[in-house]
Design a binder for these strands. Structure first.
Lengths: 336, 336
DNA sequence: CTGAAAGCGCTAACAA
DNA sequence: TTGTTAGCGCTTTCAG
C-alpha cells in the first residue's frame, strides 16, 4: 500500500509546478491555465488517486469545511437524531462534515464546547437543543458564525429555527373542529417549556371559553402521567368529545385510560396530539393523528442558513418557524 | 475582540522561544525545562487565553484528535443515538472529537465516506450499523485503524463489537422458566438478520421440543404485524402461557391482541421481549420486561478499542459480545 | 537548560 | 500562461 500522494507528486507526474496543480484542481486562477496543461494535471491526479490533504489546506485557507454541532444531549433523545441527519445532509451537500460535541445538558459546558470547536477551526457552529427552549449563549460563541437549532436566542443577534407550535396546534385542532367537535379538552404537562405554553394558548383560542374547564395539567409529559390525567378528564359526567394531548407519550397513556373506561376510539372519543413519534403515533391503535416536529427540516435549514451567513457575513440574522405538518391517521371522528 | 493569540505571542510575552512554549505546554522535552521558565510560560499562556491551533498541530504531528464515525443511517434510528453518545463520551474523555458521516444505508457510499474522513486526517474510524449485521469493508478502510460497531466483519481482521443476543435471550427466557412456564411461544420476524436467528435459536434450546409448534413468524418486526401474529398465537386452544417477542414493537402489538381477547397481563399471559426501547417498554402497561440492547456500552467500547489499537498498532484485533442486561418490569407472573 | 530553524502539505502573491 | 516563493501555526530535531 503506497503512501498517499502529495500535490508535489502530481506536479512531478504532470511536469508542472505545485501551484499549477493547485489552480487547476481548485478551478482558481481564472482563464490563465492552458487547456492542455489542465488536462495533463487532471490526468496525473486521477491516476495517482490524489486527494488534497484538508488539514494542510485548512491551515493555509483557514477554512476546514467542518461545521461544529453542539448538542445538549442531542444524541440521547430518540427523535432529535433527525436534526443531526438534516444538518448532516445539508453539510454534506456543501462538502462539509459535522464535528460533534455534546454538553450533556450542562449549560456551563457549552462555552467549553465552543472552545474545543474553535480550536479545531470549524467554519461555523450549530447549537442544538433537544427541546424547544430559550438559550443564553456564551459570548465566546460570537467569534464564529453560528445558528441556533430548535431554540431561540435570549438576546437576539443570531439566526435560529424552532417549530411553529402555534401553526401545528391550529392544524391539529382544526382536524377536530372541522368534524364538529366543540368540547375539546387539553391534556398537558406542568413543565415550563415554550411548547407547553404555545400549544395551550392555541387550544385556548380555538377551543373557546366553553372548553375552559376541560384543561388538565399533570406533572410531566410521560405516559403514566398522561394516563392518570386522562382518567380524570374522561370520568367526568360532562366528558369531552375530543382531546388534544400535549404529546404522543401522553396520548399513549390516554389510549389506555380510554380502553379501561370502555371508550372506543375514535367513535366515543377523538384524539389528536403533537410530536408524531414514529415509535408511537403509527403504532397505536387506532393510528394517532399528530402534528410532526420538523426535526429534519430544522436541521437542514440551520446549516443552510449557517452557510449563507458564512458567505455573506453582513447579512441580517434570520429566525424561522418551521411548519409542523399533521400526520393524519385514524384517531378522529365526528362527535357521537 | 482581539484575534486568537498564537504560540509566538505567548513566547514573546514569556520572553522565551516558541519551542520552549511548545515543550512546556505539551509536557514534552523531559526535565530540560527550568521550573521558573515553565511557570512563566504557563502564566503567559493563561493570561493571553492561548489555545493551540489544532489544524496547525495536526499538520505537523499528523494526528488530529478526531475520530471518524461512519453510520449507515445511524442518526435515523431512535435508539441508535445511544451508540453515538457512547462513542462521543469515550472520545471526549481522551480529548478527541467525533467527525460524523452517514452513508444513508448505501453500502457503496462507505468507501466514499472513508475517503472523506481520511482526507481530513481522522486518527481512526468507527463504522457503525444500526442493526446488528455482517459487513463487507472496502479495502480503503484498512489504511486507517478502524473498528466495527454493532456488526461483525465479513472477513475478519478488524475489531468489532455486537450485542450478546444469545446471552440476552437466555436471561429473558429464564425470567419465564424460573416462574415455571413451560409453554413459551416465540413471536418473531421473517427478516433475515442475525438477531432474529440468534434469538430464535436460543428460544428453541431453552423452550424445548414441547414448544416447537409455538413459533410464529410475521413479515416484519412492526407493531401491526406483531398484533396479527399474536392474535393467531393467542387464539389457539392450547394457548401458550408466556411469549418471548422478538422486539418491543412486536410486543406492543401483542399487548393489544391480548387486551382484545380479554387476556390480562401478566396473570393470563406473561411477556418478555428484546430491545428495551425507552419509548415503549416502560410506557406499556404493565411495564414490559425486556433485554436491553447495550448501545451506549458498545459505542464506548468501540472507541476505547480504537484508541487502544492506535496506541499499540501491533495488537490482535478483538471482538466483543456486549452483555444485554434485562430490564425487569411487570409483564411476568407464574402460569395460571 | 534553551533557541534557531526546518518542515508538515497546501495556496496565493508575485515574478517571469 | 506558468513557476518561485513565502507563509498558515505548530512541533521537533539539532546546536549551543
Amino acid at each position: 500500500m503506497a503512501k498517499r500522494p502529495r500535490i508535489a507528486d502530481v506536479a512531478a507526474a504532470a511536469g508542472v509546478s505545485t501551484a499549477t496543480v493547485s489552480m487547476v484542481l481548485n478551478g482558481t486562477g481564472g482563464r490563465r491555465i492552458g487547456a492542455e496543461t489542465s488536462h495533463r494535471v487532471r490526468q496525473a491526479a486521477e491516476s495517482l488517486g490524489y486527494r488534497p490533504n484538508s488539514v494542510a489546506r485548512g491551515l493555509r485557507t483557514r477554512r476546514t469545511q467542518m461545521i461544529g454541532f453542539i448538542g445538549d444531549d442531542v444524541a440521547t433523545t430518540p427523535f432529535a437524531g433527525q436534526m443531526i441527519r438534516g444538518a448532516h445532509d445539508a453539510a454534506k451537500d456543501a462538502g462539509h462534515l459535522l464535528l460533534m460535541t455534546d454538553t450533556g445538558g450542562d449549560p456551563g459546558e457549552i462555552a467549553e464546547a465552543v472552545e474545543a470547536l474553535q480550536q479545531r477551526q470549524t467554519d461555523g457552529l450549530v447549537i442544538a437543543t433537544m427541546y424547544h427552549q430559550v438559550v443564553e449563549l456564551p459570548e465566546s460563541a460570537a467569534a464564529l458564525p453560528h445558528v441556533l437549532l430548535n431554540s431561540r436566542p435570549a438576546r437576539g443577534g443570531c439566526s435560529w429555527t424552532a417549530p411553529d407550535e402555534k401553526g401545528g396546534s391550529e392544524a391539529v385542532l382544526s382536524e377536530l373542529t372541522a368534524l364538529g367537535h366543540t368540547r375539546i379538552a387539553h391534556l398537558t404537562t406542568a413543565e415550563d417549556v415554550p411548547a407547553k405554553h404555545l400549544r395551550a394558548e392555541t387550544w385556548r383560542d380555538l377551543a373557546g371559553p366553553e372548553a375552559a374547564d376541560l384543561y388538565r395539567e399533570v406533572p410531566s409529559a410521560s405516559t403514566p402521567h398522561g394516563y392518570a390525567g386522562a382518567l380524570e378528564l374522561l370520568r367526568r359526567a360532562d366528558r369531552p368529545t375530543a382531546v388534544f394531548c400535549f404529546n404522543d407519550r401522553m396520548a399513549m397513556g390516554l389510549y389506555r385510560a380510554a380502553a379501561e373506561l370502555g371508550l372506543s376510539l375514535p367513535d366515543d372519543l377523538s384524539v389528536v396530539s403533537y410530536d408524531d413519534q414514529e415509535l408511537i403515533a403509527p403504532a397505536l391503535h387506532p393510528g394517532l393523528t399528530s402534528a410532526a416536529l420538523p426535526h429534519y427540516d430544522m436541521g437542514r435549514w440551520a446549516v443552510e442558513e449557517l452557510l449563507r451567513r458564512m458567505s455573506e457575513p453582513g447579512a441580517e440574522p434570520a429566525g424561522r418557524l418551521m411548519p409542523c405538518p399533521v400526520a393524519r391517521r385514524d384517531s378522529t371522528a365526528p362527535p357521537a
